[in-house]
Amino acid sequence: MGKHRSVSMMDVARHAGVSAQTVSRVANGSDAVRPEMRERVQRSMDALGYRPNSAARMLKRGRFGSIGLVMFRVAGTGNLATLEGLSKAALEHRYALTLTEMPRDRDQSLEEAARIMSNLPVDAAIINVNYRTPDFETFSPHPNLKTVIIAPAAQPNCTTVGIDQRAAAREVTEHLLGLGHRTVHFISGPTASIPNRLRCRGWMETLADHGAPCPKPTMGNGDWTADSGYIAGQQLALDPSCTAIYAANDALAYGAIEALRSAGKRVPEDVSVAGTDDSYDGVVPSNKLTSIRFDNHMKGRIAFQEALGADSIKEPHQVVVPAHLVVRGTTGPAPHR
């Protein structure tokens, strides 16, 4: 049996009855081809099993057509929404995403994430980090690899894109204090989490601005789960002074509400509860939880655009994506006592 010959661009041109230049333009995603001609060439490519030579295209165009993405954790509503925003932006720009999750057996640092990306055929790297790595303040990107970090804090050497976590926490706390509550209790997520730290800071700052007492943050298991919120809610149900709770995410808030109701507390008549991220909207039927809504899709899109245009911006900068409060049925006026 003879050796199978790969299909060439000239083969496609002959099959479609067009010039090799037209085939080249279609293969490279050029807009200078009429839609009907593009479809004609694409049908010939599919019929012959033609696959463009990625290495040759890279040499000709000076880029790979792929953006690298390192996620320290893929699971989680916010991370998945960010990934969807990145994916849609890549599709619109005719780019591919090269995704890798940070291996648990590797050094959990920005430097290691950048090293992984530097060995892959990508034009730029996006690093999505949810907690402060040991080298967050000192990390410098590889000189030949454009790098953008998705994180809610500024980094001295890289452009960062993130949600304004402190402002979000301040808005929730202001909302609850404005309803007449003497103070607001905070249910904390993992203490190593950058978003959790910033939410906690925004909560504390707002209480201080209003001269309100600042209770110690309440923790369940120290994670983001509803079970952890339930444990924290059980603790707060025993505190007669607790009339308002701000939870670091919606799962914690829902867990706390279940614990309060199990203890005979009414929400919001006895205790108001607000969450963070509005991740249960469209997931829980008749969602009543007051929460701060994050546009993680937009965060992903902006991060992609920053990576794509990193050459045109010399100085690292911080892009802050705003959040907004969605008031529903779990917050109300402070009870009369």
Rank of each mutant, 00 (worst) to 15 (best):
R40V: 07
T138A: 07
W203F: 12
N28C: 08
Y50P: 11
V327D: 00
G29D: 15
A168V: 05
L48F: 10
N249R: 09
Y246F: 15
R5G: 11
L120F: 10
L86F: 05
D223A: 03
A208W: 00
E111T: 12
A113P: 10
M298T: 13
G62D: 04
A212T: 00
P52R: 06
E101C: 13
S8E: 05
H185V: 12
N128I: 13
R14I: 12
K88H: 07
R170Q: 08
A81N: 09
G162R: 01
G49S: 07
G65D: 10
A303M: 10
I126F: 04
V184N: 11
S312R: 15
D227F: 01
T330Y: 04
V184S: 14
S118F: 01
R73P: 00
S19V: 02
I150L: 14
F186Y: 15
M37K: 11
Q318T: 15
M219F: 03
V172F: 05
R337T: 14
E36N: 06
L236E: 02
D223F: 04
V23S: 08
K288C: 10
N296G: 00
A212W: 02
Q108L: 10
R197S: 08
Y131W: 13
H297L: 09
L260I: 09
S228Q: 03
E137M: 05
P213F: 01
H336A: 15
P152E: 01
H336F: 09
Y230V: 00
W224L: 14
S228G: 04
D123G: 07
K288P: 04
M298Y: 09
A232H: 06
T290C: 04
L325P: 02
P268H: 03
P141K: 05
L120A: 13
I163K: 00
V273N: 02
D295M: 02
R57L: 08
R201G: 14
A81P: 01
D250I: 03
V26I: 14
M117K: 05
R199G: 14
P285R: 01
F136E: 12
K88D: 05
D239K: 02
L97D: 15
V122G: 06
A259K: 05
L145Y: 10
R61P: 01
I257Y: 01
M1C: 10
R40H: 14
K299F: 02
I231H: 01
S262Q: 11
N53G: 13
G162V: 05
